[in-house]
Design a protein around this nucleic acid. Structure first.
Length: 343
DNA sequence: AAAGCGTGGGA
DNA sequence: TTCCCAAGCTT
């Protein structure tokens, strides 16, 4: 008997699937739960470019606070942004609110890949994943894990991103008619647990017998990726203005770096790479030190400077109680800066 | 269509 | 320490 690739993978998945809060399992929501598509959607958006370990606590907090898409649609954007703080890629949180409102207005999540693809924050991958996992559609789900597994399985040595067309065709060729959602998740589990980037565990792989990449002797070299660019160094200054147990916080512009997030006032480092902007008020300054932070596309050294001055700082802002700073929803960069100032 | 957009963990 | 990168999307 000749089991297909998908049969072998699904058999492996039935025995080795990771227990995750957004999957079927003891104590978790089941597919017949009315909020099932909501939970699949929420988890998929959170998982974009983000590790499972990082997502788990956020997923639990969100689903506890906003159990349905209607609850989320009714939430204030500020609350959602603050709840997302620390998870990164904050445009996801803005699109999350937009999407929830659209879905609430529709009355339910659309059930097809094509319709899902039109929602804010849902690209090719996420629309296909939700269609397959939440609605059982025979969708072709391709993420970075699938790219890696498929490139190795078929020994595709064309470099990314040009290889994506062939990868998609090959993925289509092995996606089963039934259980497309389980198949997608199985591919991702395999990619993250077995067919890993650096040192694939081929001895544990249910597909090793069919893997052309393994036969080459160096599957870890696939897929071939383009060289990366060096990250530029940036410098900037953030200001710590404290008065009567409160600190002055601003909300960053809606788009761009840390867009829409609460923050310490700064010198415009994200717009001016040399951090040549001005402080928000005059006064005596004290250098509190610097924090290092790396973004996807740049490294930053952020100087933290205390200002002791009179009156209200320039621009919009709020005096935020220091004993409630955890609830301010500061992204990690500014949480680091605050930690330094309070040390 | 190339570039911008966060973060934390592993090697 | 430094680099790489993880269930991508948007413009």
């Amino acid at each position: 008997m000749f089991a297909t690739v998908s049969d072998q993978l699904l058999t492996w998945y039935d025995a080795h699937a990771r227990a995750l809060p957004w999957r079927v399992g003891p104590g978790e929501a089941q597919p017949d739960d009315p909020a099932w598509p909501y939970r699949v959607w929420l988890s998929e958006v959170m998982l974009q470019q983000t590790t499972v370990a990082a997502v788990k606590p956020y997923f639990k907090a969100f689903t506890q606070r906003w159990p349905t898409v209607f609850d989320l649609a009714a939430a204030s954007e500020d609350d959602v942004m603050a709840a997302w703080a620390g998870l990164g890629y904050y445009s996801r949180a803005r699109n999350l609110v937009k999407c929830a409102k659209v879905v609430a207005e529709l009355g339910a999540f659309p059930a097809t890949e094509d319709e899902l693809r039109k929602l804010p924050g849902l690209g090719a991958y996420t629309a296909a994943a939700i269609a397959a996992i939440a609605f059982g559609e025979h969708a072709i789900v391709v993420d970075a894990n699938v790219e890696r597994v498929v490139a190795r399985l078929f020994a595709l040595d064309e470099p990314l991103p040009a290889a994506r067309k062939a990868i998609r065709e090959r993925t289509n060729s092995i996606t089963p008619e039934n259980r497309a959602g389980d198949f997608a998740q199985a591919m991702m589990d395999l990619g993250s647990q077995i067919c890993t980037t650096r040192a694939p565990r081929c001895l544990l792989c249910p597909l090793s017998g069919d893997c052309a990449g393994r036969k080459t002797g160096e599957p870890e070299t696939l897929p071939v990726k383009p060289p990366k660019k060096a990250k530029p160094e940036r410098r900037g200054t953030a200001y710590w203005i404290e008065r009567e147990g409160k600190v002055w916080l601003v909300t960053r512009a809606g788009t761009g770096m840390l867009g829409g997030m609460r923050a310490l006032p700064d010198d415009g480092w994200s717009a001016q790479a040399d951090g040549s902007g001005k402080p928000p008020m005059a006064g005596e300054t004290t250098d509190l030190g610097a924090v290092r932070h790396s973004f996807t596309h740049a490294h930053l050294t952020l100087q933290v400077v205390r200002i002791e001055g009179q009156g209200t700082p320039a621009g919009e802002g709020v005096w935020w109680p220091l004993d409630e700073l955890d609830g301010a929803g500061l992204p990690t960069l500014y949480a680091k800066a605050a930690r330094l100032a309070l040390a």
